[in-house]
Design a binder for these strands. Structure first.
Lengths: 202, 202
DNA sequence: CGTCCGGATGTCGCTATGTGACATCACTCG
DNA sequence: CGAGTGATGTCACATAGCGACATCCGGACG
């Protein structure tokens, strides 16, 4: 947490121009070229013109180089949930739609490439799961700050996150063209249909 | 996958009496005594009277020693979902209740100890997330085998899993005494309440 | 009975992860 | 100009995880 969403100190900006950013870029390139497991932290550092040890000072982990955006997502999510009066589930869904519009909308290709990398490595999948979980915790906390009880907040968050995941999977899948935000709204409606009808025997 | 749910070959049973089981037990003890990160694979193997290399032949990972039960959970879950005619969400919830009764009911203390270990280590949390995810994938597949479409199956599974997680958290928390199965039913009802009311502005 | 076979285990060695301790270097401030 | 501060590099090290090879056991078979 500490070293991961700091960005970089103002002081250091001209000293080493965006070391963190260069490492992220180098990692992304190498992961695409050789795959995650075939890439060494030393390789990444070398391509960025830095040392292995510097990488570990800026990222806690080899995996973290791929997940720097999650801090930003959390900000948007928490703010959106905090600023609305809608019911818990609706608030979370709306927050995810806002993330979709502000952070993902015009980056389909980039997101697809990133997703391909993640899907190629179990380790990265685990990390993504953890990031998602910590995002969820933040959203739940924001909901609770609005006066909701723990269980309601958790259920709303998790349901909203599920909706997002399904919509995201559709969006990232090849051949999709609908905007993510619209997909989220659709999936949310489907969820309601499934959970609200307690009976049905096909 | 390959070496992890094999159990142990019949042939080897008397050859090395339950090497796998002894390693699991040794790992569990050591994780409780010193913590996960302070425990070395060599330590675990030594306590079981075996070699580090043998550990890696039976488990893919240091973490895997704690997650051998998940194969069994998957079996019960898939079977329960397959054998029922109920609607997707109900089917998943019912399956989790069955798991609760058959696999967790009389092991509260053990489950608590295990949970404490997992919560003390981010690495283990990630692995648990992954296990949960793979369980979910299996359930979704079982649902699809019943003729449901991908999205419905996924939403039902994920919602059911969310219900389980919340109920499980309540059950494991100190001071709880209600049976897990009952808690699951309660939480499922709460989820319905949240998602089925599209409007509300407090 | 002896021998040979196959699977389980041990041994050795190696690469890569991640970290602590210490040295350096550039820049800034007094 | 000298001291201090923060970013970086260097070195050493414990551990994870894995490939290759040696070994050892019980059982099948002549």
């Amino acid at each position: 947490m500490s070293q991961c969403d700091v960005g970089y100190h103002r002081r250091m900006a001209r000293w080493q121009p965006d070391a963190r950013g260069r490492l992220e870029a180098a990692a992304f390139e190498l992961f695409r070229e050789r795959g995650f497991e075939q890439t060494t932290v030393a390789d990444i550092a070398a391509r960025a013109g830095l040392d292995k040890r510097t990488f570990y000072r800026l990222f806690g982990d080899k995996r973290e180089a791929l997940f720097s955006g999650s801090g930003h997502v959390e900000e948007v999510l928490v703010q959106a949930v905090t600023e609305t009066d809608a019911g818990p589930f609706e608030a979370v869904v709306a927050a995810f739609r806002r993330v979709a519009e502000e952070l993902f909308a015009d980056r389909l290709e980039l997101v697809r490439a990133r997703q391909a990398i993640i899907e190629s490595s179990p380790e990265l999948q685990e990390r993504e799961l953890r990031k998602t979980g910590s995002l969820a915790a933040a959203v739940t906390a924001a909901l609770r700050a609005r006066g909701l009880d723990e269980t309601t907040a958790t259920l709303a968050t998790e349901s909203g996150a599920t909706v997002f995941r399904v919509a995201y999977a559709r969006w990232v899948a090849p051949g999709s063209d609908a905007p993510l935000s619209d997909l989220i709204a659709e999936v949310a409606a489907e969820l309601r249909a499934i959970t609200s009808a307690p009976t049905e025997t096909p």
